Simulated assay, not measured.
Amino acid sequence: MDVILRTEELYRDFKIGDGSVVSALKNVNIEIEKGKLTVLRGRSGSGKTTLINILGALDRPTKGKVMFDGKDITKLSEGARDNLRRHDMAFVFQSVALMSGMNAFENVSFGLRLAKYPYDKRDERTRECLAAVGLDKRMTHRPSEMSGGEQQRVAIARAIAHEPRLIFADEPTAELDTNTALHIVKLFKELVAKQNMTIIMTTHDPSMMDVADKVYTLEDGEIVG
């Protein structure tokens, strides 16, 4: 088993208004295999987003380690964590977060510019990624001219464009109807199979479980089952 990411006794506590402490994560130990689709499932408030934020170096744990390729990324400086996210990781959010004034091609190309992808290869790579998600004939359309599923596919194309080693998808299908959601997850599976990508996805939808290579269930901040 080729593990790209793992946690060791991960805890995350938050202080609330009255000074008391709420434990969002408790003793989380998981392993993410390279080239697989891993699902983090659980109801709202179970700790899924907190966990994915820590795995993606957007937040730090109160206690414990996140090991990425054998290195404890929780100890990295903010600059090093920014660099890690820029080059080795990518994020797909529920809200898609596309630039409304840019068309599909420009949204993906802009992401490559932020990642400092070689200038002379950006256009070709942008076309490749939009074709990979089935939008090669929709490149000049803006988000307002696209369906929710098409917008999410643009967001996925933008995420995979700089060839990250890990993709984090936080409830990417929550705003979509069931059929469109299944198409998006099928697309994730194709990216894993054809491009050997590693994807970590959070969801509370039980219909998404069958397509995952591995499922971790969170309840009240703990891994169960």
Rank of each mutant, 00 (worst) to 15 (best):
V3N: 11
T7G: 09
L10Q: 05
D13K: 11
I16W: 05
D18L: 12
D18F: 09
L25E: 03
N29D: 14
E31K: 14
I32Q: 02
E33R: 15
K36M: 05
T38I: 14
R41C: 08
R43T: 03
G45W: 07
G45I: 12
T50N: 06
R60G: 00
R60C: 04
P61R: 10
T62H: 11
K63V: 14
K65Q: 14
G70Q: 06
K71H: 13
K71Y: 11
I73F: 09
K75F: 02
K75C: 10
N83M: 11
L84F: 14
R86G: 10
H87F: 14
M89V: 10
Q94S: 08
Q94Y: 14
G101Y: 04
A104V: 02
A104C: 08
L112Y: 11
Y119D: 07
Y119T: 10
T126V: 12
C129V: 14
L130N: 08
G134R: 06
L135F: 03
L135C: 03
R138Y: 00
S144M: 02
S144C: 01
S147R: 02
I160Y: 06
A161I: 01
H162P: 02
E163A: 11
L166G: 12
L166D: 01
I167W: 01
A169T: 03
E171D: 06
E175P: 03
E175G: 09
N179F: 14
T180H: 09
T180P: 08
T180C: 06
A181C: 01
V185L: 13
K186E: 14
K186P: 04
F188Q: 00
K189F: 05
L191F: 06
A193F: 07
T198V: 06
I199D: 05
T203M: 02
H204N: 08
H204G: 05
M208E: 00
D210K: 12
K214P: 01
V215G: 01
V215H: 03
Y216G: 06
L218I: 12
